[in-house]
């Protein structure tokens, strides 16, 4: 087997284009995922049993079936129904790009919702009770205490979930999108150099995951900054109050 470096060099710009689309897909689906996960998780921790049924079924479906089925259900499935094709949704659903973003968003939302539920349930009771004692109502408590704390707690596992979504985004290539994997497959159909191109794509995925891990380290620091208090100087305090000793 002859390893062909020139074919990698020639096609690197194309692979980079593909990587850009991959990043876009991961970013937008992550955004949709978090927005959807929020209500799902809050319903899931509800005290009323029948409220918990919908988020439970949603999470069960999206975590129990392959992502490939989900993307085909949205992309090909939607076109089975004439009323969808005649509705206002069709301009969006006829685009493979939006089908991918929607599917990935729905998919990752199920996983994020579970992470968020775990995080919410692991907030120390005392903090909630303290918030109640100072007279906070539920929306305020949610905004000031529960959600910031939950995001901090789930941040490391959320990072993992984003990496999994990055890997899952390769399935966009099955609905004609030229993401990193799709681009690699298209190049190979012509050059017949599977090892060179697939492994180059693999290395690019690896670099993207390393960047994502780095980004989440920073986010983690930000959300959990109360735990690193010695490193932050109380700048906005009245200078007279700062202990000079």
């Amino acid at each position: 087997m002859n390893w062909d470096w020139t074919v990698i060099g020639q096609n690197l710009p194309k692979l980079m284009d593909g990587a850009l689309l991959t990043l876009e897909l991961v970013f937008f689906s992550g955004l949709i995922g978090v927005l959807l996960a929020l209500p799902l998780a809050l319903l899931r921790v509800s005290q009323t049993p029948w409220v918990r049924v919908f988020p439970y079924a949603y999470i069960f479906f999206f975590r129990g079936t392959p992502l490939l089925i989900q993307i085909f259900l949205v992309y090909y499935g939607a076109s089975q129904f004439e009323w969808i094709k005649e509705s206002a949704l069709w301009p969006i659903l006829r685009e493979p790009y939006w089908c991918a973003v929607i599917t990935f968003g729905l998919h990752t939302a199920a996983y994020i919702a579970e992470l968020l539920r775990g995080a919410i349930q692991s907030i120390p009771r005392g903090e909630i009770e303290a918030a109640k004692v100072v007279g906070m109502n539920y929306p305020l408590m949610l905004r000031r205490i529960i959600l910031p704390r939950a995001f901090g707690i789930m941040m490391p596992s959320y990072g993992n979930e984003v990496i999994l979504m990055l890997k899952g985004s390769a399935l966009a290539s099955t609905i004609t999108l030229l993401d990193l994997t799709g681009m690699a497959r298209t190049i190979i159909a012509r050059t017949y150099t599977p090892m060179e191109i697939f492994l180059s794509a693999g290395v690019i995925y690896l670099i993207i995951s390393a960047l994502i891990i780095g980004l989440f380290r920073l986010l983690e620091r930000y959300f959990n900054r109360h735990q690193h208090w010695p490193s932050e100087k109380p700048k906005n305090l009245d200078p007279q109050l700062i202990d000079k000793s």
Partner: peptide, 18 residues
């Protein structure tokens, strides 16, 4: 250019109007 994994999927998208 849209490339499909199977011919059937290409036919499906022709039928769907994509």
């Amino acid at each position: 250019v849209k490339l499909y994994d199977t011919q059937d999927n290409a036919y499906l998208d022709l039928a769907s109007g994509r």
